[in-house]
Amino acid sequence: MILLLKATYYEILKIFNRMRTYIGFATVTLLVPMIMYLAHRFGFDVQDQALRALGDSVMFVGTLVNGLLVSYYLMNVLWVHFPFFIVLVGGDIMAGEAAAGTFRVLMTRPITRFQILTSKFIATFFYTAVIVFYLGIVCIGSGVMIVGGGDLFVFDKGILILSQNEALFRFLIAYGLAVVVQMVVAALTFFFSTIASNGIGPIIGTYAVLVVSLILSVIQIDVLDTVRPYLFTTYFDVFFAPFADPIPWREIVQKSLCLGGYIIGFYILSLLVFIRKDILS
């Protein structure tokens, strides 16, 4: 156990000593405040559109267009765009060592393959959690600073306006669930990384599966109804669930368990492959 913890610590250290790790952080740091500035400068008319029906009777005080609203909309990057930063690091975590030949050095140590793989998996989880929460912190932080704070305006069986404190609590849950969602992507790319011998294959492989699964999940064709429950992307929308009122905990737990099943499934597959794998490079 101590060896596993030590190995995990050094895996995290390795991840955060690599340039590619910071591509995601740098992109988030640059792009998100820029988007916030543009939203602040040019705004968008979602409030007027949505509340048009009431406009003749009431006047609106304050604005619903604020940093939290932009942050909420920015969560849409979690579907397809943000996973790139996950696969960029996760795809290389096993394949990178295989390609660089460092597995040879690692495996001559008194550490088991189970411990090596598990430590890398935990480190991948750690990176995923850190970058997802970093996205959340930068979105909400820069949003509140640049666009301003206030109530969060979302759609849920109509219009739902959440107070700022309530919205922040919902964001916390949402980003926690986003970690689970992104961890499925990480686990998939981790699996591909285990069977690949370079870092490019897992990135392409993961994206191919992700995009195809998303398309199959999104397209509303009856034929696909039987397939859809088996696609992990079907449960990806769980990170928007906390913005319902009341919070649909049952749905969140069910979807999280499904996603957790995929994470464990990909982990076990990776383990089976890696334990039997001959290190020939």
């Binding site: 949505a50 509340l51 759609f155 109509g158 999940s217 449960y235 928007f240 913005f243």
Partner: peptide, 24 residues
């Protein structure tokens, strides 16, 4: 303030896998 509107606010759904950016 009693509102009697001929047009209601649409029951827009939260974003989901079917409608990733929110359903209007």
């Amino acid at each position: 303030v009693y509102l009697n509107m001929q047009q209601s606010i649409p029951a827009m759904q939260r974003p989901s896998i079917e409608y990733p950016v929110g359903y209007f």
